[in-house]
Amino acid sequence: MSTQAAFATALLDPQRPCPEGLFSANGADPASRFAVYRNNVQNSLINALADSYPVVSQLVGDEFFRAMAGLYVQRCPPQGPLINDYGKDFAEFIDRFEPAASVPYLADMARLERLRVQAYHAADAQPLRHEQIAAALSDPQALSELTVGFHPSLNLLTSAFAVISIWAAHQQDATLAGIELDHGQNALVLRNGLEVEVFAIDHGAGTFIQNLQNGQSLTQALETAPAFDLSQTLALLISHNVITHLHHNQVSP
């Protein structure tokens, strides 16, 4: 094994001894010096996860979170130098992490917080002006063939738990009193200007937006969505500046 291979392996696995071939000028045990690097690697990556998943951390407490994140770091170290991206599959790790099973909504909270990070750093795009949207929607003939382009930050999450209510509670006093935890919610995550916003929407509205995101026309998107309030949903999308394109599909002759 090369010097750096041995070093890297021992950094990520605290069970392994300090690599060979190292020394301290004062004769101190090199393991006591190597521990600095090991702590730096472990702690900096755990801190990166704590930054991305603040509510997950609050839900289980700092000590539990750091222990769980430490195991994730050992099993899934970053595969590149962009730490903003690190932990994309933390939710899947949490799903399989037995000691967290008593907090069944924890993995979905990680999914929601990941979508927030993604929305924060997503590409910029100019939303359509409200007058442009009003003009496009005013022609009932063309409306059915209209497709909608969304801001790159827009994303959806369907959860069997009340993740949005739980998340919102942790922006304030962190009390879960009054929240029906296993009341499923659909999250709409977007960036409006510089601010990331999260909304709880109807299942039908979520399906509708998902259909539009898949390229379906307004009519097609409506047909397969369970009942929901269309005008309220369009108003939400328009007022939060996430409609960036409206296209009239050319009907083939």
Binding site: L11, G21, V41, P78
Partner: peptide, 17 residues
């Protein structure tokens, strides 16, 4: 310094021989 080994990024500035 070095901070990557293969695809794995270690997020620290590691020493060289």
């Amino acid at each position: 310094a070095w901070s990557s080994h293969g695809p794995v990024f270690l997020n620290d500035l590691l020493p060289l021989a």
